[in-house]
Simulated scan of single mutants.
Amino acid sequence: MSSGTRVLVTGGGGFIGSHVAEALAPDNTVTVLDDFSTGSKAHVQFLPADRIVDADVRDREAVASAVAGQDVVVHMAALMGVRRTLERPLEVLQINIDGVRNVMREAARADVERVCVASTSEVYGDAPAAPYGEDDVQAPETNYAVAKRAGERFARAYAATHDLDHTILRYFNVYGPRQDSSAYGYVIPKFVDRALSGDPIEIHGDGHQTRDFTYISDAVDCTIAALGPDGANETFNIGTGTETKIRTLAEAVADAVGGAETVHVPHPRPYVIERRLADVTKAVSMLGYEPTVSLEDGIEATVEYLSAGGRSDQYTVR
């Protein structure tokens, strides 16, 4: 993507979206659209107020207004988090499917050059073998994963019938500064918060389940690379290709904060995905992607951020 591009980032107040918007902002005209129900306006203080649109992606008129005049749309808006998606299943479907539909429809009407749709490794579900390649079997297990898979298929079909370039990105367990550490949040900030508070780090089950943890700056680098010409009409995994056990993760967090107890507790979910690992061969070969941040360094940066109170105006990952 050339500099001087007009870019709309939906969900731009969220974790990944705000980092993508911030990385693009110095050389491009960036606007964000977010209802800030889970994102934060503090994350987008680098933008002038007139380029922050406070609106729901389900609001078709608001989306149409924000999309008008844009060259590229990066669609990050979604309802995420296991607990949220279990508690609000209908809203998951509305936001994660209707949002894609609104964005694709208005992008085609506005002659946008490219729409990049954020998806998730959750679409692979409990597929038979890891690592997962982009064309491998998918077996989504949750309403969130089903909705994201449906969003992918709609985006691809709509783009094909309306001569609209698109890119789909499947993120694998991205973490780092600005990620939610609340009761609705994600494993690394939850582990860090407990350790910093002097509470034991709770490992669900035996801790042998694995994930592919990707630091935010690596995810942003791959996202921006995918907006270039080589990413047109392609789907990419964004991960590291490195598998980490949850118990190993807990031990790394404990070490990073200077020591913390770890305890095993029953797994609260009705299902457990044992392995989640990205095959990033396609992103490496087509985009020149190369993850550079080790888990230890990424955890250290996350600990530093949360230790300082998680203030977005005092921290950048780049």
Rank of each mutant, 00 (worst) to 15 (best):
D59I: 07
V63F: 03
K41A: 11
P48S: 12
S37E: 15
V57Y: 05
D56S: 15
A66D: 04
L47S: 09
G39R: 01
E61F: 07
V67S: 04
V73K: 00
L33I: 06
V73D: 01
P48Y: 00
A66F: 01
E61M: 09
S40D: 06
A62S: 15
A78F: 05
R58N: 12
V32N: 03
V44S: 03
L79D: 08
I52G: 04
A64V: 05
V44D: 01
A55R: 12
V32R: 00
V53T: 08
P48T: 13
V73I: 11
T38R: 08
Q45L: 15
V44I: 15
P48D: 14
E61L: 12
D56W: 02
H75D: 11
A77W: 00
R60S: 10
D59L: 13
V57S: 08
E61Q: 13
L79M: 10
A55H: 07
D35V: 06
V63C: 05
H75E: 03
V67L: 06
D59N: 13
R60C: 08
H43M: 11
Q70H: 02
L33A: 02
R60V: 13
V74I: 14
V53N: 04
R60F: 11
A49C: 09
E61Y: 14
L33C: 01
V44R: 01
V73M: 02
T38M: 13
R58D: 13
K41M: 14
L79F: 08
A66T: 05
V74T: 05
V53Q: 01
